[in-house]
Amino acid sequence: MRAIAALVALLAPFPALAAGERVSIQGEVIDTWCYYSGVMGGPDAVVGTAHHTCALWCSAGGIPVGILGDDGQVYMVLKIEGDDGSASGDTQLRLASHQVTADGMLYERDGLKYIVVEKVVSDGITNLSHEDYDVIPPFAIPKPKN
């Protein structure tokens, strides 16, 4: 019976703090909903300059921000340099679409990767995706009123 109890303990799902791992991630600060959902188009269209205004809207609107790493993985941002404003915070808003190097702690749970960024260095916006996609969504640049 003890063996069975031990087996149950081993197999049963359990909540626990994920163990953090120190990492340095290079990638672009993205709007995760547009990237994951495809609501605005394919993954190459919802990054960079083409999607910058939409990325601002989504970040200000409280949609989670992530770093699309050069390794193709998305790292959901929980905190940046002490700012825990992961829902519409100022720090993440200023970094929308920027290419960054982010040092911090990585956590993984249930198929997603999360990062608490301790230090971030931005190289600015370097992905000139508007050259291929114009602007996504097209109404991001409003028509002149006259």
């Binding site: 300059t49 083409a50 910058h52 205004t53 601002l56 809207w57 200000a60 100022d90 808003l93 200023r94 929308a96 679409s97 920027h98 916006i125 508007h130 602007v135 991001a140 640049i141």
Partner: peptide, 14 residues
């Protein structure tokens, strides 16, 4: 906040 950022950095962020 969005309006201020667009005024400074533009719609493409450049």
């Amino acid at each position: 906040r969005v309006a201020a950022m667009i005024a400074e950095d533009g719609y493409l962020g450049l």
